[in-house]
Amino acid sequence: MAATVDPPRTQTPTPASAPDEPGLERAAEQAESRRGFLIGLPSLLYLVVLFALPLVIVVVYSFATRSRTGRTILADWNLSSYARLFDPLVLEIGLRSLWLALLTTVISLVVGYPFAYYLATRSPRVRGVLLVLVMIPFWSNFLIRTYAWRVILGRDGPFVRFLEPILGTEGQLLFTPFAVVVGLVYGYLPFMILPLYATLERLDFSLVEAARDLHATGWQAFWRVTWPLSRPGVVAGSILVFIPSFGAYVTPEILGGGRTTMIGSYVVRQFLSARDWPFGSALSVAILAVMLVAAVVYFRTRDREA
């Protein structure tokens, strides 16, 4: 047989293939998909039952009514819990949370960016060691790390005693917004540093060289090249700091006082002491909404940069 480009057609079943018809491989590929789905199914079921369903229940509760005794009546569906979100007191707490979370985010960015830049411009060896040094406190117990600041900022702590000449004997750091922000920055700074470091480390520094070659000053090269290219890291870090800061509970509870109540603590209060579950649920939904907005912003930016 010489001509191999067109071997004689045999009667071996060669199904005529219209382009829009499913191909021969379809059954095999479907079996493969089914197999993959089945492997993921147990976790999917778990998440549906113990995450998605609870989420729905919270939304349902937010429309329920609270009885005089604090019981939740799953009837008489109404929006009064949402209406209460606009009470001056609640709005104040919400705005305070927003403000403290934003402040935390900005401070983390201002401190974290140069830190990540410093890290990313070290030699690979040094970089590895420094990164480990960032990771260790990051992975250590959050509650305990916050507690440490209570000791530091407390009445007999080193800070107050050191600052006594300035603050006076009545001065106090603990239970102030300052303490809360310090605690939040302390807790979430690594969330800012790690994504920033990840983008800066991957940044092609020959682009900066190119900018310098094209007569940019160091400052111009930074603003016109490095900063825009590191923006995905900035956005990711900011969101990762903002979301937990906004919903924080442990930090304001340990370091804050009556006048620094944040929305997380307020939610907990509805469940553990005030026993107003519908209102607490509505507050949780509000937190979720803020979180989702932040997440959408993040994914939008990421997709645009990509």
């Binding site: 060669t14 191909g23 021969l24 590929e29």
Partner: peptide, 18 residues
């Protein structure tokens, strides 16, 4: 590693496409 959408694939006369 891929299955053909159409046609016949034989190795020493044995159909192995799928």
């Amino acid at each position: 590693f891929e299955y053909p959408s159409a046609g016949s694939l034989q190795i020493f006369g044995q159909e192995v496409g799928l």
